[in-house]
């Protein structure tokens, strides 16, 4: 399937992974956001809403097909929700990304038809709102062309995709708890939360998250050079000059807060689902590593088998990756001035 090889991650949930009740609940969860977005769009754009949404959804669809070179030599695909939100605002992004996802599901078989509600809820609703909140907080009042906006866009896209993945992981993870047949065999996604969450997050903390970061930061950097007016919608009160040196320091503080919160967030999610985080999460990771490195554990040093180490490793990976993202974005933006000749 043309679309099938586009999204190697399970962020586009296919049919059969979620029970009909879960699907219905997520349709119901997405519906009020669709409704509010439609009302807001009608008010903000009037008769221009129909062509704007259509062309923008088509753009998002095409962006999802871009094969993006990522740091580390791999390539990946972005959802485009970061840049959609930054240019059009969260409401238009919710609708635009949803429309692109619906066409992907129905026409190209990418993502299930029963899971449209779930996919829209995770990627369009959570993705857009998370991008918007993080971008607004991190970008602050920085001028339209400031490097801080590029970093804010990259981080916002990265975190938004990871939150969407977390939501999908939770949806997967509650399936075996709720639905199994008489023999105890899971009827839908078979992995419990303690496996589903780390399995989903590792792929998204690395490839999918980085892809979204590259597109969000890169397109913002491009628009700063060639069409800064397109960045104004989500930058109210942006400073006129790009002088604000102090603004970058604020950014680092905001980022530090984010870094500290990330592992806490993972812990909090664990306990929210009724599991004592430190005792249970490692068991999931241990189970996970047993099928990833199946033949290996025998020869591995004993501390690798320690459950606490497994959890620490995953938390460190996440935090480290965020730090990496920040450094890379900064480095990307620094290199930007030199490339002007090539991109114009």
């Amino acid at each position: 399937m043309a679309g099938r090889n586009l999204n190697q991650t399970a962020l586009h949930i296919p049919d059969g992974y979620l029970s009909p009740a879960t699907c219905a609940a997520l349709y119901a969860g997405a519906a009020p956001f669709w409704y509010v977005s439609l009302q807001r769009m009608k008010r903000a754009f009037n008769t221009q809403m129909v062509p704007l949404l259509s062309v923008f959804a088509a753009f998002s669809f095409i962006i999802m097909m871009f094969n993006l070179p990522l740091p580390g030599g791999t390539t990946g695909h972005a959802v485009g929700v970061g840049i959609a939100t930054i240019v059009l605002g969260p409401w238009a992004s919710i609708l635009g990304i949803s429309i692109a996802l619906i066409i992907q599901a129905v026409f190209f078989g990418d993502g299930g038809i029963t899971a449209i509600g779930a996919n829209c809820f995770n990627m369009a609703v959570i993705g857009s709102l998370a991008t918007y909140a993080i971008y607004r907080v991190l970008a602050g009042r920085a001028s339209i062309t400031s490097a801080r906006r590029v970093i804010a866009a990259g981080v916002a896209g990265y975190v938004a995709i990871n939150l969407a993945a977390l939501a999908a992981a939770i949806e997967f993870g509650i399936q075996p708890l709720l639905y199994h047949d008489a023999s105890g065999a899971p009827l839908y996604a078979p992995y419990p939360l303690r496996i589903a969450i780390p399995a989903m997050m590792i792929g998204h903390l690395t490839i999918a998250g980085l892809a979204e970061m590259v597109v969000s930061a890169g397109v913002v950097a491009y628009l700063q050079r060639s069409e800064p007016a397109l960045l104004k919608r989500t930058a109210p009160g942006a400073a006129e000059s790009s002088a604000a040196v102090g603004s970058l320091r604020h950014l680092w503080f905001a980022l530090a807060a984010l870094l500290i919160l990330t592992p806490l967030g993972i812990l909090a999610t664990g306990s929210a689902w009724g599991e004592a985080p430190l005792a249970q999460a490692p068991r999931g990771l241990r189970a996970l590593s047993s099928f990833w490195t199946a033949p290996m554990p025998r020869y591995a040093p004993p501390f690798l088998k320690s459950p606490a180490f497994g959890y620490l490793l995953s938390a460190m990976t996440g935090t480290g990756l965020i730090l990496l993202v920040v450094l890379l974005t900064g480095w990307l933006t620094r290199g930007r001035a030199g490339s002007r000749g090539l991109t114009k």
């Binding site: 221009q48 062309v55 871009f66 397109v219 491009y222 628009l223 397109l230």
Partner: peptide
């Protein structure tokens, strides 16, 4: 070099975005 490839990919996305915005205005 990889950084250049990334920049090209995101510039391509940026060009497409501004063309899309312009086109939506004309379609309107």
């Amino acid at each position: 070099p990889p950084s250049e490839r990334r920049r090209l990919a995101s510039s391509a996305a940026g060009v497409l975005l501004s063309k899309s915005v312009q086109m939506s205005g004309e379609v309107h």
